[in-house]
Nucleic acid binder design. Structure first.
Lengths: 340, 340
DNA sequence: GTGAAAGCGCTAACAC
DNA sequence: GTGTTAGCGCTTTCAC
């Protein structure tokens, strides 16, 4: 009983299928690849043989011959702790993985070594994948922009590339969403509206600040009350504290993530400030935090699984040479609850 | 400016490297694969050529010739929503991905279609991967047990296979951890100790219940106060409510996850029951919930990133034919905070 | 519509 | 130590 690295009997090959079906290998290949010009009868008998043998095409051989890998890389920044901690990413990954499961593409996780970006670049360009999905992106992610010239790449969330760049992007319209969440506050009579913003080196953070600003400017209100957090509950707490410690009147806060809003509520509660009585709150993400805070939060719902599926779909279509819009916007909606 | 699926110039091949370095292809192959018997000089010049050309070995060709894919599948149950919602899994995936990034293995996500398990099985056995990591596992996951006979497979978290099964498993000792968390309650003078357990069709849930039970039995205490949750905060709330509604005295609760404990605290607070004054709490997972609840929770720390790395490492060693223990236990420790 | 033949880029005996 | 020679299992012209 020593260590036995299994795989006892060899997997059936296309050749075996051909023999059993009484046709040539080419024909089997055609059937497997849904070639249009094969007789119904032949298709049937080949499929029967495939079924009987439990044949599965060998990816490696297929890739080598066809020069397509049927593999898509999900590029993950090395700072994975932060990446995985964000439920947003988990949802997107899930959506992408689910969508790809319905195609014959495979999703591989590629950790982008920051120490050696060249390694990542080469892997991606070395014919190991048919395309890449890039989710996170700080302003210095120039390298991926470069990469997109030689490989189909779709960005999830707007990478901070110079405007007019011709990259493929799938994103919720953070500006618009934040704007409507802020306008909701205005429409309910609030006038001293602060924001707890997200990191200003992420497009999501920046765009949400911009939306808040636009809504305020349009209403002729002050845009002074701006504090930044890191999208986490503790970050929200600290930002809320800073906001209150300014000593200026505040009657509402647009918080750039529900997680931060949850932290903000903790501080508000501790200081005896009522929500929505004294301070109204709107936020983004319809997640556990939004649904289970006290009070429950009026928030922007972004269908995240959808985003994952969509971003993967766009990439697959791109790989297949189909016509795709450069920018795919995912609709959001405002959910009214008890924090306003 | 029509759709151009890029990859302009062909990637450099091993043959080109060989030509540039003035050696044969085999030699280049040897250098690339760290073969011991190559002259220092040759290694240097080959590496120089590789560097100069920006050569990256083609996975497909390599796999085809060597019959090893350098790919590891992470098998994910189709019910992905639940899977990804659990931060435990995110951490484990992260750890595994990080570890594999330091090897030349690649991690691919494989969604296990429940409607067609045969498809998953064939993919795994069809020579597309060198091994598989299986994380979730309900009692009916017999199929994977079967699979493990023909492919190196490592299970994370104890799959509910008949005892004495010879599968490779990496897990925290949930029984032991739960036992010590419960004993901690006993040692602090509590005698009416309830538990909010995890799902009883997951080994983690079952084992934690078992640990709680053992500690109680050893102390001659009652094991009646057992309610089940689903590892989420709302699940914890409901279970806590059921527990209190029994009308029996309770002076402590061992909660099988910090997320559930957070939900339980909400209920306790709403009913004006003080923690730890009237009811003490210990739990498992040293996550955001454990650290940021009020009061902060005394809990069992399980290094989850470590588990991910370890599970991947075990698999790689298995694939390489090294000797590995069937069972790898990850140590846990109890962190004392304010809930007892 | 189907078959024959020529590789895809690499590894792995086997010679030398 | 290094080169030579066969393939790995599949796709893909090109004939027929």
């Amino acid at each position: 009983m020593t260590t036995e690295t299994a795989t006892s009997h060899r997997a059936p090959t296309l050749e075996m299928v051909a023999a059993l079906a009484g046709v040539s290998r080419s024909t089997v290949s055609r059937v497997v690849n849904d070639s249009p010009r094969v007789t119904e009868d032949v298709i049937r008998s080949v499929n029967a043989a495939i079924e009987q043998l439990g044949y599965v095409p060998n990816r490696a051989a297929r890739s080598l011959a066809s020069r397509r890998t049927h593999t898509i890389a999900l590029v993950i920044p090395e700072n994975t702790a932060k990446f995985f901690a964000d439920p947003y990413f988990a949802s997107v990954i899930q959506g992408a993985a689910m969508f790809l499961a319905s195609t014959d593409y495979t999703l591989t996780l590629l950790i982008a070594s920051e120490a050696n970006p060249e390694k990542t670049r080469r892997y991606l360009l070395g014919g190991n994948v048919d395309g890449a999905l890039v989710l996170s992106h700080h302003s210095d992610d120039r390298s991926y922009a470069q990469l997109a010239r030689n490989l189909p790449v779709v960005f999830g969330g707007r990478p901070m590339i110079e405007t007019g760049s011709d990259h493929y992007i799938v994103d919720v319209d953070n500006v618009c969403a934040a704007q409507s969440a802020t306008r909701y506050l205005i429409d309910h009579g609030r006038t001293r509206i602060a924001t707890i913003a997200g990191p200003q080196d992420m497009s999501a953070g920046l765009d949400r600040s911009e939306g808040w600003r636009r809504a305020l400017l349009a209403a002729g209100l002050s845009t002074d009350l701006h504090e930044v957090g890191d999208f986490t509950p503790p970050g929200g707490e600290q930002a809320m504290r800073r906001l209150l410690d300014r000593g200026e009147p505040i009657d509402a806060v647009f918080v750039a993530s529900a997680q931060m809003a949850s932290g903000a509520l903790t501080v508000l509660r501790a200081r005896g400030i009522s929500v929505p009585g004294q301070v109204a709150i709107t936020t983004m993400d319809n997640d556990y935090y939004a649904q289970n805070s006290t009070p429950q939060l009026t928030t922007i719902d972004q269908p995240m699984g959808t985003q994952g599926a969509l971003i993967a779909e766009v990439l697959v279509r791109l790989i297949n040479g189909e016509q795709v819009d450069k920018l795919t916007i995912i609709p959001t909606s405002l959910i009214e609850r008890d924090s306003v």
